[in-house]
Design a protein around this nucleic acid. Structure first.
Length: 634
RNA sequence: GGUCCCGUAGUUCAAUGGAUAGAAUAGAAGUUUCCUAAACUUUAGAUGCAAGUUCGAUUCUUGCCGGGACCA
């Protein structure tokens, strides 16, 4: 049982004895005591005033007296200031804790919850390489899965690969047109980048064609368009000429008209038509299209494998959209039978979510083809069959909030037993100082490039510091990777997932302060000490007096399990990151003030060695939860 | 037009309704005969605006202003 819980229970039993009122641990507000006051933990008395009908000061005195009296080995003193009851915890509590825990690692202590949790994350598209935004997703998903495992859950990591669709066809078309049979092997370009380049080429070409078509449209040449679209374009033209365009509202309307026009023109370009046709051929299973598709996706997967391995993402099960995109139609049928869904006159199927404050939502087109949400309905079913979960997390960016809300609602209305367990772990987008990353404008930060650059930076910094002269080249390279990825992962995980964050390529690559390398460095220093002296587990340290910083450190270390539980409950790796950082920070302060190897006496030395060992363990495990390795030396 | 999210030092991030709002960076000033100075110490600097609930509000409610996302 953690110290915080122990204190709460002690308080609640004191209150019970004093006032014959039963309070649960949750009714007691417990904080760490602010440094300017005497004490370690603080009970906020205001919350108790109403129920116990006494002044805060009187309550503090009575409860404090009672607690110190009934558990003298735990509480050594108390004071009451302005409605706060500050309790001092006996040093022996910490020394005993230290002795118990320094020897063993911390993992495996948690009791299994018996709960199954599925975590879906990463979910890449096979038309472009992984970028910075994906990295946040990958790190977050992996870390949350790890945290949930550590908290005693059975976890299954899944990935849904978006391997079909019009965007995939675009890369294929461009490759056919421009590649002359080139391959990743022949060019030496990583497969995912290779394919991504053709996607970009295709987009670029489409824009050229669209510009030409647009000029024709402006000259009233509609030869390239169907009658219906010709009509629409003419209408749009008339509409826009009717708008004055000087107010903001007008400008907005004009922009919308312009966008509609662009969309129609884009769709009429030869390349878009070809891509559309290719998608039809793909769905029809046309052999040469399927073959090309397999070949190009194969290149992409080879590239992804390299990146995934490097950044440490892995999955227990991978779903492919090409295999799931037809799913969900049966679910729609069931929904119709149950009357949850309804069919409109044109044959399309909808769900009415107006009662929930949302709109009507299309779930099946009138020609019977799927929309995005159709297959998500089907995939949800598949996932539950494969792993009957209590919770199913979808790690998806917050731009999908509406979509995920609808998905969950539909499944709930259909009465699916797993619907309530669905949770959208929504995270904010990563932005650049100049704003949102846009692949069309080429402002996307590529993951491979970014990691390379950080490795280079890590190598430079390490050679400046040079405490690893005896390392082989292979060991050095491993160290650089460890530091670079440590910096990157920590940077992306230290922020609350829900919040949008800004990545500044120049400034964010930092190895000082609140960063991964700072913690890695602290760990290396710890290990350096531990290599120089034997830690004797048998040594009795039970009755020693603690220095302020020793106690402060132990107080923090003792909270490890509570923090883990909290992080698991909130699906929030940032809670771990913040905690580990404060551990490292306090340790560094301790390190400068007190010597371990040259401690005042042998007992102190042993105590501090054990303290070092426990600190190193906590740092290693905590960083492990974030997917960050800590080096033995750096 | 509708729904949702976000506004905290110059900048990037913290803060289960609790005490004088924490860090990091950038700025200023220091600390290497001693376990790794990627460290440590000192210093200055912030809750968008206006009401409300409360003993107490960065946190909850409402309105406004500003930024973003989505739906149509």
């Amino acid at each position: 049982m953690s110290l915080a819980v122990t204190i709460k229970e002690a308080a609640s039993s004191a209150i019970k004895e004093l006032y014959a009122i039963e309070l649960g641990a949750d009714d007691i507000t417990l904080n760490e005591t602010k440094p300017e006051f005497e004490g370690d933990y603080t009970i906020v008395l205001f919350t108790l005033v109403k129920q116990l009908r006494k002044s805060p000061d009187a309550l503090g005195k009575e409860i404090g007296d009672k607690m110190v009296l009934s558990e003298p080995s735990l509480f050594t003193a108390y004071n009451v200031i302005k409605g706060f009851l500050n309790l001092s915890i006996a040093d022996t509590y910490f020394t005993i804790y230290l002795q118990k825990n320094s020897a063993k690692g911390l993992t495996g202590k948690v009791t299994p919850t018996g709960k199954k949790v599925m975590v879906e994350y990463s979910s890449p598209n096979t038309n472009k390489p992984i970028h910075l935004g994906h990295l946040r997703n990958n790190f977050l998903g992996w870390s949350v899965a790890q945290i949930l495992k550590a908290a005693g859950n059975e976890v299954m990591k899944t990935c849904i690969v978006n391997d079909r669709g019009i965007h995939i066809c675009k890369s294929m078309i461009a490759w056919e047109l421009f590649a002359n049979g080139a391959t990743p092997e022949s060019t030496g370009i990583k497969g995912d980048h290779f394919v991504g380049d053709y996607y970009v080429k295709c987009e670029w070409q489409i824009r050229q064609e669209a510009a030409e078509l647009s000029a024709k449209v402006d000259a009233d040449d509609y030869a390239a368009f169907s009658d219906a679209n010709k009509q629409k374009l003419i209408e749009l033209k008339e509409l826009s000429s009717a708008i004055a365009g000087d107010t903001d509202k007008d400008k907005e309307r004009l922009k919308k008209i312009e966008d509609d026009k662009k969309e129609i023109i884009r769709a009429a370009t030869p390349l878009m038509k070809r891509a559309q046709q290719m998608l039809v051929d793909w769905e029809a299973g046309k052999p040469e299209v399927i073959e090309l598709w397999k070949k190009m996706n194969g290149w992409v997967y080879k590239g992804f494998d390299v990146t995934y391995k490097r950044i440490g993402s892995d999955f227990d099960k991978t779903y492919y959209e090409s295999e799931t995109y037809l799913l969900g139609k049966q679910t729609v049928e069931e929904g119709l039978a149950k009357g949850v869904l309804f069919r409109k006159e044109d044959g399309s199927v909808w769900i009415d979510l107006t009662a929930e404050g949302l709109d009507e939502k299309l779930v099946l087109r009138r020609d019977g083809t799927s929309v995005y949400i159709t297959q998500d309905l089907g995939l949800a079913e598949e996932k539950y069959k494969a792993f009957p979960y209590d919770k199913s997390l979808y790690v998806i960016a917050d731009e999908q909030n509406y979509h995920m809300k609808v998905l969950r609602l539909i499944l709930q209305k259909l009465g699916m037993p797993y619907a309530d367990g669905i949770f959208h772990l929504s995270y904010g987008m990563v932005e650049l100082p100049s704003g949102r990353m846009k692949s069309r404008e080429g402002t996307v930060v590529d993951a491979d490039d970014l990691v390379d650059e950080m490795v280079k930076e890590a190598a430079k910094k390490t050679s400046e510091k040079s405490k690893v002269d005896e390392f082989s080249e292979a060991e050095l390279n491993e160290l650089y990777e460890t530091i670079a990825l440590g910096a990157l992962k920590f940077f992306l995980l230290k922020v609350d997932p829900k919040k949008r964050m800004v990545f500044n390529p120049e400034e964010s690559i930092d190895f000082h302060g609140f960063t991964g390398p700072f913690i890695q460095y602290t760990h290396a220093r710890l290990k350096s000490i531990l290599r120089k002296a034997e830690v004797s587990e048998q040594f009795a340290i039970g009755n020693m007096q603690l220095e302020t910083l020793e106690k402060e450190l132990l107080l923090l270390l003792e909270q490890y399990n509570d923090v883990l539980q909290q992080a698991a409950m909130e699906y929030n790796p940032a809670a771990i990151a913040n905690y580990i950082y404060s551990v490292a920070k306090v340790y560094n302060s301790f390190y400068t003030v007190h010597s371990v190897l040259k401690a005042e006496n042998e007992e102190k030395k042993q105590l501090r060695l054990q303290l070092c060992k426990l600190t190193a363990n906590v740092i290693k495990e905590g960083m492990g939860l974030l997917g960050i390795k800590v080096p033995e030396r750096m």
